[in-house]
Design a protein around this nucleic acid. Structure first.
Length: 593
RNA sequence: GCACCCGUAGCUCAGGUGGAUAGAGCAUCUGCCUUCUAAGCAGGUGGUCGCGGGUUCGAAUCCUGCCGGGUGCGCCA
């Protein structure tokens, strides 16, 4: 099943070619004036200028070719030229109906899967040991997850790597602080190389508290900082006790992060971290020095870039021998190329890291670690009410858990009590589950629908809003359809009946669904889930109008009734695919008080 | 100082790569629940697209200069 715009574009290309015109501008876009047309082609306008011709005349020629191609009038209901030379296209009801029916049998809703799959690693979330996940982790996590799903849907082999922040100075700080507080622990026993405890001595909250304490003390006291550096260096040298302790703390942090990800419906194929490249770092730096890419400068090892790049050098080894995240990120690229056969990497990371990634990407090219596309899909910062990024200094950013709980609680308030008439058949667990699905959807959609690269103001109220352009509105569109089929005692999967267009709302619904392929393509090309958010929301709107205007079960005419059921089933399929690509749950039923 | 991003309705944001009358949600006002879930639908109010030049048939979109905000720039990650 070819998608609608591709079909139209092909038809236009042929018409352009037959008219002796270049076909680069032979493309349709949804009409800006829906009351006049379904689609429009602006190609005549674009061509007229370089050719020195009258755009309306060009449009006439193209129009004549289009009419010739559609001899039986099966495709177009109306073709016309408007304004300076727009070609307005209105499709026939029959053509639209058969197209819609065809979509039902396509598992990808007409989206063409790629013939050249890439092996892609998406690097997102990046939680840090010692720091509980906060609202700043929300965007990279859910945008990365969504992009990964889209790329796989498109036929690629995409994997998510959590890229845990589990190496470097913070580890030194935490371990040094623990040694300061608990020198008697076996991990710190001089010369001990084995027989360390196998259970972590502290839990996730304590790790966070220790880290904060270490940071605070380090700020005041140079000795504390030096001890942390030495400890980090010793860890880097594989000090057995430190390594043993670090592994336990890391395990605890993993478990904590996994809980967060589970609620967010984010999954990772690879649970790697900065530490996984630690053995590669020293040899890599030697290699870079041999290749004359890296050089010694002021006691540290740096990589310089071409003058015209206008980039400051990247620091890959500090004067104390410690490594930086530029070092681990560069080594990680090497690792992915060598061990994972990667031929595309996408980093879904805060845009403030932009220079860092430019430096790392350029370094990787210079060292020939990756002769493929490296992309930093930059994420806009979440700002406080003052318009500057939420800072961790004073007024720590809200914890992710707290934000999720707040939205879930708000969602629960709208649900009926267990045992009440309206909650018939629902257990307390069912209701909790439903509240979670609705609350999390609210947060995810609120976040995903914003442009990836623009900052936005964090407003708790917006995250607990359920009306209008929100996650629950989308879920509601699906639940209503489920309810219709349930009431009718029919199987939603039944896709037999042909579609008949009898009302403008049916037409609009079909047209909005037909836009799926373009919307998904835009999301994939631009690494921008908001395009698909717009799509799923528009379809929900068109469905709501259809739902109001076109009664289904009470319709006398059996053919119309069957057609509307088919349309409802198609809508449902579309919404389920979109919501899944966005990582948003679609509850079977939405209860109300 | 160098580099990047942004300025669109009262608020939060879109705007498919230069096209027709700049769109949504929230807020506000008006209608619609003995008919498939009102977390809904239909409609109204609300904008010199920061300001000035330029490019052209045509600019929120491209170029340029201001004004105003944000971010980043070797020993944190």
């Amino acid at each position: 099943m070819k998608n609608l715009t591709a079909h139209l574009n092909t038809t236009l290309s042929e018409a352009f070619a037959n008219a002796g015109l270049e076909t680069t501008h032979a493309a349709v876009v949804p009409s800006g004036r829906p009351e006049l047309a379904d689609y429009q082609c602006n190609g005549a306008l674009a061509l007229a200028k370089p050719m020195g011709k009258n755009p309306r005349e060009l449009a006439e020629t193209i129009l004549a070719e289009l009419k010739k191609a559609d001899t039986e009038g099966a495709m177009f209901a109306e073709l016309s030229i408007a304004g300076p030379g727009f070609i307005n296209i209105k499709l026939s009801d029959a053509f639209l109906a058969s197209h819609a029916h065809g979509l039902l049998t396509s598992p990808t809703l007409g989206f063409p899967r790629t013939e050249k799959p890439d092996t892609i690693i998406l690097d997102y979330a990046g939680p840090n040991m010692g720091k509980p996940m906060h609202v700043g982790h929300l965007r990279p996590t859910i945008i990365g997850e969504s992009l990964k799903r889209m790329l796989n849907f498109a036929g690629h082999n995409a994997q998510g790597d959590v890229h845990f922040g589990d190496w470097g100075m913070p580890m030194g700080m935490i371990i040094a602080e623990l040694e300061h507080d608990h020198p008697e622990w076996p991990f710190f026993e001089e010369g001990k190389t084995e027989g360390f405890p196998t259970e972590s001595p502290i839990d996730i909250d304590e790790i966070g508290a220790i880290y904060r304490k270490a940071a605070a003390r380090g700020k005041e006291d140079e000795d504390v900082r030096r001890k942390a550096r030495l400890t980090a260096a010793a860890l880097q040298e594989e000090h057995p006790g430190y390594i043993a302790l670090w592994k336990l703390l890391r395990g605890v942090s993993f478990e904590s992060a996994k809980k967060n990800f589970l609620r967010l419906n984010a999954t990772f194929e690879l649970w790697l971290g900065e530490s996984d490249v630690r053995q590669m770092l020293a040899p890599m730096i030697d290699e870079l020095k041999d290749k004359k890419i890296a050089e010694l400068d002021d006691g540290a090892i740096i990589i310089r870039f071409d003058e015209e790049k206008k980039m400051p050098p990247a620091l890959i080894e500090k004067s104390d021998g410690g490594y930086t995240y530029a070092t681990t990120d560069l080594a990680t690229i090497k690792l992915r190329t060598e061990d994972y056969g990667t031929n595309r990497i996408i980093y879904i990371v805060d845009r403030r890291q932009s220079l860092h990634f430019q430096q790392v990407f350029e370094s990787a090219r210079m060292a020939d670690y990756a002769n493929y596309e490296l992309t930093h899909a930059a994420i806009g910062t979440i700002n406080g009410p003052d318009g500057t990024p939420l800072k961790s200094r004073e007024g720590a950013p809200p914890k992710l858990d707290d934000l999720l709980n707040a939205a879930i609680d708000k969602a629960r308030e709208k649900l009926p009590e267990v045992g009440s008439e309206k909650a018939e058949g629902f257990t307390q667990e069912d209701l909790d589950q439903l509240a979670t699905e609705i609350g999390v959807a609210t947060i995810k959609f609120q976040d995903l629908h914003n442009n990836r690269n623009t900052e936005y103001i964090f407003d708790l109220e917006q995250f607990s809003r359920f009306e209008g352009k929100t996650g629950p509105y989308l879920q509601y569109s699906v639940a209503r359809i489920n309810s219709i089929f349930e009431k009718a005692g029919l199987d939603v999967a039944n896709k037999g009946a042909p579609i008949k267009v009898t009302h403008a709302s049916e037409r609009n619904l079909i047209l909005s669904i037909a836009n799926f392929t373009d919307a998904l393509n835009r999301s994939i090309e631009r690494y921008e889930p908001s395009a698909l958010c717009e799509q799923v929301y528009t379809v929900a709107q068109k469905f709501s109008a259809f739902y109001n205007d076109c009664p289904i079960l009470s319709t006398e005419d059996e053919a119309v009734k069957a057609s509307r059921l088919t349309l409802a089933a198609l809508t449902r399929a579309h919404q389920l695919v979109c919501l899944d690509l966005l990582g948003i749950a679609a509850p079977h039923k939405m209860l109300t008080r």
